[in-house]
Design a protein around this nucleic acid. Structure first.
Lengths: 209, 209
DNA sequence: TAGACTTTCGAACGTTCGTTTGAAATAGTC
DNA sequence: GACTATTTCAAACGAACGTTCGAAAGTCTA
């Protein structure tokens, strides 16, 4: 295992970034939560931006690999995967992170990034990972939904990303909306909810009757 | 018309808050953009929090009133409104703001709030406006979808809010996803896209076949 | 024009931020 | 145990932040 200081900083930063946002989280809050010295961040990561990049890289690279591997596994069985299976390949690796320690924190952070991309301009080449996922999945999704114009497909995928981001972030809002009766489901349960909702939305007729 | 200083501050703050977030926007950036003196914010709004509240109040109160009025108009025609009409009553007043000057900025700001509620803890009683909308719309939506358990309905409404927030924020991501061919639609077009997607998602069978 | 009130202005306050620096402490190698 | 490299520590830096305050400027009524 790497020296524990780096891990403790990464874990604390991930949690605080998810809870309060990157901007609103000071390095002093990170280091005091992690129980390490303030200067350790600049020593190990160079700068706050370096820390942000490290927090994302630690999870985003395996996540992208899992998504692409799940798609490859699908394409190994058939040339024409079902829509639900494509969605599962997209969602489950993300939501499965919720079962790892700190995974829910990172998912919330990822949800933040979806609606606040400008605050993460420092991520740079890490964002190309999303480009790889898009390049591989979108043609397959388009093949499952041939009656959809390209524009309409993109709009619906945009909505899909929003639904997924909301599934990741702030279950507090969900609990408020349900008066506390929903919000404790497992990652797989959430994935099933998502696939039912998003699958039907993507399959909707292209124009109102 | 009110003294123009307050309006200029509100307009500049709305735009910068939407673009960079509340935390990342300094009062110096707001006042220099608005072309007024730094101290004018504290003079007219008391504090930065007061400015945030004023930015939201200016748009949120009319928006809530329009949503509730649209629902009342529906219920005046029939006791059992259609799901699509309910969704339109919910979405159109929001997306119609996009046709007003600065409206798109506020929509982006609203989308930010959806996934970053903790950064807006200062809004206080303004958030009760959402509670009113929820209290009036959710029972009607539940009546349209009687086969859905309460938990499942809440999950799907959560996804719905995410899809709407993503429709509001950062069309840049949509343009990136579509290679520039989507993202220039009018508010009504977006509402129609949303109603098709979300309507089908909400109407999906409760369990996978 | 004189006076009362509102608004704008310049300047500074105290705080917190990310970052840097050099010394102290630790770990690893011969 | 001495030498080297790595890591941790205490302390401070300059910059940017929200806020405050008294004077200057502007506005309106009598």
């Amino acid at each position: 295992m790497e020296p524990s200081t780096k891990h403790q900083i990464l874990d604390a930063a991930e949690r605080l970034f998810a809870e309060f946002g990157v901007d609103a989280t000071s390095l002093r809050a990170v280091t005091s939560t992690a129980g390490v010295h303030l200067a350790a961040v600049n020593y190990h990561f160079g700068s706050k931006d370096g820390l942000v990049r490290a927090v994302f890289a630690r999870r985003l690279e395996p996540l992208t690999a899992e998504r692409l591997a799940a798609l490859e596994a699908l394409l190994g069985h058939t040339d024409a995967p079902e829509l639900d299976d494509l969605l599962r390949a997209l969602f489950e690796p993300a939501l499965r992170m919720a079962d790892q320690p700190g995974g829910t924190d990172f998912l919330r952070l990822l949800g933040r990034m979806h609606t606040d991309p400008e605050a993460f301009g420092t991520l740079g080449s890490l964002l190309e990972l999303f480009g790889e996922v898009r390049a591989r999945f979108v043609p397959q999704l388009a093949r499952c939904l041939p009656e959809l114009a390209h524009d309409e497909l993109c709009w619906r995928l945009h909505f899909t990303m929003g639904a997924m981001a909301n599934a990741m972030t702030s279950r507090a809002v969900l609990r408020w909306m349900s008066d506390g009766s929903a919000g404790d489901e497992s990652a797989t349960d959430v994935a099933n909810h998502l696939i039912r909702f998003v699958g039907a939305g993507l399959r909707a007729p292209a124009r109102l009757a």
